[in-house]
Amino acid sequence: MALAVFGLLAALLLVGALVVVLHPDSVYSALALVGVMALLAALFVTLDAHLIAAFQVIVYAGAIMVLFLFVIMLIGRPGSGGPFARGKLLWAASGLGAAALAVGLGTMVARSALPTPDAGRAEFGTTTTLARALFTTCLLPFELTSVLLLIAVVGAVVLAKGRPRA
């Protein structure tokens, strides 16, 4: 049962990911990416990680992808032909990169002993468990991440405003 659900979700996710890359219309690509985010959230739910699934939808599908669509709408659809009318060199380079990534990830997965998720435990993946881990054992990296995001926001504001006129 669980394997069948996983297989279905994973297959849909791959189809969505292919649509993101291959569809000539950027609005459809962005929407397919939203679908991929939602399916990823569903996969998290099957692993009993409900809070992560909620964050996946709130942050990625609900905020970041809306901004993607926002920008696409403001700029308008790019000219026909799409991203594939760019020559063979780019094709070769991206193919090579993808192959290298696939090999690297494949060997990594093959070598590591994947622990079976202890999803059976009642408190696994609950809001309380995750919050406790986040604010006790992982407090420093968590806070450092927020500083990193702050730096990114400041950088974005500086870039958007441009240099002050002397």
Partner: peptide
């Protein structure tokens, strides 16, 4: 749901797509 009230935020954030 274990995530409780966060589910409301999830659905509110998805609702934007209909408008967009």
């Amino acid at each position: 749901l274990n995530i409780g009230v966060l589910y409301v935020l999830v659905m509110a954030s998805v609702g934007v797509y209909g408008v967009v």
